[in-house]
Design a protein around this nucleic acid. Structure first.
Lengths: 336, 336
DNA sequence: CTGTTAGCGCATTCAA
DNA sequence: TTGAATGCGCTAACAG
């Protein structure tokens, strides 16, 4: 009924040769007679032989599995990144173990533990909102498990990372708005933990500088990313004597919440107020008043680059030191 | 530099006892002296001993990993289902290997192969649009890998499955529309491959029957789920002499495409035409004209139930036969 | 209560 | 070119 899968031992017995010969034949080892090799491979195929991965993993001390830790899968951004990761992993005959931190630090730590225990060969991480220290990742060094951070990268030295710079396209975005005649452009920042490198704000300021438009501090507000937080931020902006006519929102969710709230306050979107956002969700095409432009961050590409970097680390002899590598992609402004 | 993790052997040596005693002590085996047990556990803790999973997997012939094959991660529906799966798997100290078929049959087959080779203990599957035969899954029986289908379940006997019935809530939906005074209610069906059990249509018809409203065949159209396909379907409806005043759309995407197209054709949503859809995306709250009601299918719950069923199968001795189990949840109509 | 031993499937070193 | 022997870390059957 439930027949056990064939092993090299059985092949060896049927052919009256030794297991090592079978093993070598199966691996195209140079020092094997063509005849025997053919014989072995033929029989192996007939018997539907398949190497027992668990045995190999055990023997080699490797699992051919990489861990991928993400805040969540719900954000389209991360779903796309996964595809990039999977594609590269697949090419290298690796599996991907996925864990969601749900932006919870404790959960993130737990996932790291689980993955370590399961002996993943390497780790790709986009950190949670709460993650302000990375000891739980540094610890992996002791186990020789390389870590590559991507997208949401911790602000510490001596790590491998891949991320997408928002600086230039934020400049593009603000310049676009200025060119369209907007004189008071607001910016809704995210929470400090995700803003260590506040490229959005830097770009926002730089664009003003370039166009010689003074930056009005009261037009810069903050949200914790919750709907309420965003509404309060927008509230603040709309309460100003000189209301802004455009808003650069931290991300797509904030942009949508902003638009929704502005509408509730009887503002005409794209007339009284325009919105620019980050990321670039397909769903926006179904909105009556989508953001007028979005900053594309190329999640798939980031996933690919991060995974490639990880494999580079995996394929490096452990006695070599590898310089920390930090790949920075450039985002792009998409005008809708 | 890179110290190898400690093993039970080392613990044994340090304590001058045998490895089996250590093994048993670590497992709280009843026949171990309290003294030795304490000693062992203390030292193990000090040495940061951690069992080598790969060794255990090898020895036990189990990987403590289940495979989860989905059409994609982009649909919120599946992301939520994953959470249910993960939660249960986590509780059982299992890992989850995720694969996306991208609704491509060949890719689905490939994923099944990869997962089998990696010796997953069991498989959870929501089949691709293209999947019209399930030999590649039945084949797993030979390897004693149980399979539980969920949500998108193939229409064949002798499988384990968990899905959510849409029949009654479709009746609710149509009755709601009828009660609101709609006399011509259209239904946009999905492609035949996903419609083997066409519960939506059955519910649609039953509701008409109950309310003694004749079913008008020309109000029943079909889309292949592409935007174009949906537009053609809507086109057909809008070209009728007696246009419908309400549409029951196959799913959320179809609903959104329908709404978009209707707007383009200058129809006032919720006035000239109302839309009901399946699934229940959070994003709809950002739409100016969301569907007036949606059928909730409880993806998280489905994930949980499917995984629980799988563990039931995994925990059954292989010499027992288990009757095929088919869990049917009931969807619910959410009126917005 | 504890120790001895065998073996899971494979790659690999050493010997022939 | 091939075979014999070893060991990866752990569990469990068997023996004391």
């Amino acid at each position: 009924m439930e027949k056990k899968p064939p092993t090299i031992k059985e092949i060896a017995k049927k052919l009256n040769i030794s297991v090592s010969t079978v093993s070598r034949a199966l691996h195209d080892h140079p020092s094997i007679g063509l005849r025997t090799k053919m014989q072995v491979q033929k029989l192996a195929a007939e018997m539907n032989y398949e190497p027992n991965q668990t045995a190999i993993q055990f023997k080699q001390g490797k699992t051919f599995t990489i861990g991928l830790i993400l805040p969540n899968l719900m954000e389209e951004y991360f779903s796309l990144a996964i595809n990039g990761v999977e594609d590269i992993a697949f090419k290298n005959n690796y599996n991907v173990l996925i864990g969601q931190s749900h932006d919870d630090l404790e959960r993130e730590k737990k996932i790291v533990e689980t993955m370590r225990k399961h002996r993943v060969d390497g780790l790709l991480v986009s950190i949670s909102k709460q993650t302000d220290a990375i000891e739980h990742f540094e610890q992996l060094d002791k186990y020789s498990i390389p870590v590559v951070f991507f997208d949401r990268v911790p602000n510490v030295p001596d790590i491998h990372s891949v991320w997408c710079s928002l600086y230039y396209s934020t400049i593009d975005a603000v310049e676009l708005l200025l060119k369209k005649g907007h004189e008071r452009i607001a910016h809704i920042c995210g929470p400090p933990s995700l803003n260590i490198k506040n490229e959005r704000l830097e770009g926002y300021i730089e664009a003003h500088k370039r166009k010689k438009v003074p930056v009005n501090e009261s037009l810069i507000v903050t949200t914790d990313l919750s709907k309420e937080g965003t509404e309060q931020a927008v509230e603040k902006l709309l309460g100003l004597k000189n209301k802004p006519t455009a808003i650069v929102a931290f991300n797509e969710t904030v942009a949508l919440d902003t638009i929704q709230y502005a509408k509730k306050k009887k503002l005409k979107i794209n007339k009284d107020i325009s919105v620019v956002s980050y990321a670039n969700w397909p769903i926006t095409s179904h909105l009556d008043y989508p953001p007028i432009a979005s900053v594309e961050q190329f999640p798939y590409e980031q996933g690919v680059r991060a995974t490639e970097l990880l494999f580079k680390l995996l394929n490096t002899k452990s006695d070599q030191t590898i310089p920390y590598e930090n790949v920075v992609l450039q985002s792009e402004l998409i005008v809708h």
